[in-house]
């Protein structure tokens, strides 16, 4: 039987882990930078003592990621709009498609396909099931119940339970 004391232990482990993954990690990054610049010690020291050095402890958010994303969902839905707006802030190319007509070739030319569906007012088990063969191996994110049903159809471990 696991008691409350063990839950407290988990909290302590987490706190230690957060320290490891937070401040210390930033420090390692600075150490790494200093090593790379070892031939330019004076320049490196000046950089690390400057405001730019302090800013490096808080890594800047990545700029747009150079990836081509296909979001195949429910065309015209608010959910599609929400996803596309969000993805567009982070990836250089985002296009939409229809989950109902998605097939083995639909993701050609994209880095990742996202398969999703708007479930507002709809029986989740009536979501469209794209016709995918077992040869389909594009990098794909399947979302929610619609995604789980696709996993089941393809006999994947990600299938709906």
């Amino acid at each position: 039987m696991i008691g409350d004391g063990e839950a407290d232990d988990q909290l302590c482990i987490l706190e230690r882990k957060e320290e490891d993954m937070g401040f210390d990690k930033g420090r390692f990054q600075l150490q790494g930078a200093a090593k790379v610049l070892s031939g330019f010690a004076a320049l490196a020291a000046a950089f690390l003592c400057s405001g730019a050095g302090a800013a490096a402890e808080e890594p800047a958010p990545p700029a747009k990621i150079a990836m081509r994303i296909l979001y195949a969902g429910h065309p015209g839905s608010a959910r599609e709009k929400d996803f596309v707006e969000f993805l567009g802030k982070h990836f250089t190319q985002v296009q939409t498609g229809d989950l109902a007509t998605f097939n083995d070739k639909s993701a050609d030319g994209f880095d990742v396909a996202i398969l999703d569906y708007d479930n507002d007012g709809m029986d989740a088990f009536k979501f469209p099931r794209p016709k995918l063969s077992q040869n389909y191996a594009h990098a794909t994110v399947t979302v929610g119940v619609a995604g789980g049903l696709i996993g089941s159809q393809l006999r994947l471990k990600t299938g709906y339970e």
Binding site: N119, H138, V141, K157, T158
Partner: peptide, 25 residues
């Protein structure tokens, strides 16, 4: 409704299942 340890996010080969239902907002 399911079991301890059932999967919210998991990957099988080139398929990554994001089991959560919400859109980004």
């Amino acid at each position: 409704g399911k079991q301890y340890g059932d999967v919210g996010i998991g990957r099988h080969a080139s398929f990554l299942q994001w089991g959560f239902s919400a859109s980004p907002s």
